[in-house]
Amino acid sequence: QRITLKDYAMRFGQTKTAKDLGVYQSAINKAIHAGRKIFLTINADGSVYAEEVKDGEVKPFPS
């Protein structure tokens, strides 16, 4: 399943989102408010992988 960072954070909370991605909650808040195009893939085992689309390139998040 693929979902935006904002939607994932709204569904699970910023604290869990940060923990799942290995970053601080403040980084999640800042990324959402900056309007960054970050998409999360939720794997069947429950693990989460995030990618950011920037300038036409897709890069892992966090980099």
Rank of each mutant, 00 (worst) to 15 (best):
Q1H: 12
Q1A: 11
R2M: 09
R2A: 07
R2C: 09
I3N: 03
I3T: 07
I3L: 13
T4K: 08
T4L: 08
T4V: 04
T4C: 06
L5P: 00
L5R: 00
K6D: 07
K6I: 10
K6V: 12
D7C: 08
D7W: 05
D7Q: 09
D7M: 08
Y8K: 00
Y8N: 01
A9D: 02
A9E: 05
A9N: 06
M10R: 13
R11K: 14
R11M: 15
F12T: 02
F12L: 03
G13K: 01
G13Y: 01
G13W: 01
G13Q: 01
Q14A: 15
Q14H: 13
T15C: 13
T15A: 15
T15Q: 14
K16L: 03
K16W: 02
K16M: 04
K16E: 04
K16G: 03
K16R: 08
K16I: 05
T17D: 01
T17P: 02
T17G: 01
A18I: 02
K19H: 12
D20R: 06
D20I: 10
L21F: 02
L21E: 00
G22T: 04
V23C: 09
V23A: 06
V23Y: 04
Y24S: 15
Q25L: 10
S26V: 10
S26Q: 11
S26H: 12
A27H: 11
A27L: 14
A27N: 07
I28F: 03
I28S: 01
I28M: 04
I28A: 01
N29M: 12
N29K: 14
N29R: 15
N29W: 15
N29D: 13
A31L: 14
I32S: 01
I32Q: 03
H33D: 13
H33E: 14
A34V: 09
G35S: 08
G35V: 04
R36L: 12
R36P: 01
R36M: 08
K37A: 14
K37E: 14
I38F: 01
I38M: 01
I38V: 08
F39P: 00
F39T: 07
F39M: 07
F39D: 03
L40C: 09
L40I: 15
L40K: 00
T41G: 05
T41S: 09
T41C: 08
I42T: 06
I42M: 09
A44F: 09
A44R: 06
A44Q: 11
A44S: 12
D45R: 03
D45N: 09
D45F: 05
G46V: 02
G46P: 00
S47C: 06
S47I: 08
Y49C: 08
Y49Q: 09
A50D: 00
A50R: 01
A50V: 03
A50N: 01
E51F: 09
E51S: 07
E51D: 07
E52N: 01
E52Y: 04
V53S: 07
V53M: 13
V53P: 02
K54Q: 15
K54A: 13
D55N: 13
G56T: 07
G56E: 07
G56M: 07
G56A: 07
G56K: 07
E57I: 13
V58G: 05
V58Y: 11
K59C: 10
K59M: 15
K59H: 13
P60H: 06
F61V: 02
F61C: 05
F61M: 03
F61A: 01
S63Q: 12
